[in-house]
Amino acid sequence: MSLRATARIAAGADGSLPVLESDGPLALRRTRAAVPGWARVTVVGAMSAPLGGDRLAIETEVRERARLRVDSAAATLALPGRTADPADYELRLRVGPDGVLRWLPEQLVSAHGSDLRVRTTVELAATARLVLREEQVLGRHGEPPGTLVSRLTVRRAGRPLLDQELAYGPGAPGGWDGGAVLAGHRATGQLLVVDPAYGAGPPAARPLGEHAVLTPLAGPAVLVTAVAPDALALRRVLDAALDELAPEPAGSGCTAQRIPHSGYGFGKETRVRNDEMAPLAKGSPEHVNT
């Protein structure tokens, strides 16, 4: 059975969450944000199971002057479904004037045999700020990857700021594992920081080690692009960049909650987590729309 589900989040300026709608496997929880004025939402367990044929979406709206952090309790595991159709996962993010969104989910793991299309669309007001992390892991430990096509489109004040699509796996066009694209690396990711304050002069481009780079975009934004042998090494690079470019707001409980082994030590441990959470996804038919 394939699912259709759309979860919705809206954050208000006073730290409120006027909309917080879970749907089917997409269970949202308000979690504690230590800094007053911030709201925090954690996508729990069920996010970890887009199966073939599923059509999942999360719509997030950060209203004027609102500050929101969204994270997830565990890595998202794309799994093969009963149908040959790919799974669709759509993330629609909007940040209004002077709003701030920190979108810091755990990794997306493309399990062998899976086929997932991710579409992330971000609409930013000219004065909005964004921190967005994306990490893709090519298969669980020791298995060949599934197929992933993931596109990230960011528009700021209606103008394109970043538009990128990554494709890998047996269903992707050829050459993705060659010397131009991933060259045998099993994890890749990006950290995007958009801040109107960069308008005065974003940090200059520089390599972050041999397999990552920090690049100022053609707009007030910086992108860190990295490839790595595994998710752990990838996270290390992106965390260092995050701490430098956009550290957690002072006094925020978010930093303390970055549990070193929950997300990116996704080997055996996380597979267990996903197994535990899988029944959550499949066993909540009352939330399933189709």
Partner: peptide, 18 residues
């Protein structure tokens, strides 16, 4: 329009330029 990208080309372009 397509937006297909290649992480290593972006990473190595900056290294090469330096």
């Amino acid at each position: 329009l397509p937006a297909a990208s290649a992480p290593l080309l972006d990473i190595t372009a900056e290294q090469h330029a330096a």
